[in-house]
């Protein structure tokens, strides 16, 4: 069973056991506009919470995607690199960015559930 959590920086995390799948929210993609480039972290990289982990670029601008929690990158989405527009069409599905092995479950406590995130973006 997966639980989806959110950050105030508009990332989502689908938690399944000790693995979190990370992407940016539909709200975030609407703010960014047409995404034309995505750069993902290398598999095996140990990410620290809040460090720049990925880059998403629209026609107009580049934005960092920050690691929402600490942990090792297990897998990245090659399909997304090949087709960055997936962020616009399916931000919270096919357009996942990377999977991370959760290093410290206590970091999940600072994240929002869907209701709290909806209130945050309202």
């Amino acid at each position: 069973m997966t639980t989806t959590l959110y950050t105030s920086d508009h990332e989502w995390l689908a938690i399944d056991g000790d693995v979190a799948t990370v992407g940016i929210t539909d709200y975030a993609q609407q703010q960014l506009g047409d995404v034309v480039f995505v750069e993902l972290p290398k598999v095996g990289r140990a990410l620290k919470k809040a460090e720049a982990a990925a880059v998403v670029e629209s026609v107009k601008a580049a934005s960092d995607v920050y690691a929402p929690i600490s942990g090792e990158v297990l897998e990245t989405n090659a399909e997304l690199v090949a087709e960055p527009a997936l962020v616009n069409s399916d931000a919270q599905g096919k357009a996942w960015f990377f999977k991370i092995k959760i290093a410290d479950r206590s970091e999940l406590g600072g994240l929002m559930d869907e209701a709290a995130y909806k209130a945050h973006t309202a």
């Binding site: 506009g33 047409d34 034309v36 629209s58 026609v59 107009k60």
Partner: peptide
């Protein structure tokens, strides 16, 4: 206006 609902890519 920086863009309309169509978005920068489609407008271009």
């Amino acid at each position: 206006p920086v863009q309309y609902p169509a978005g920068v890519l489609k407008e271009h």
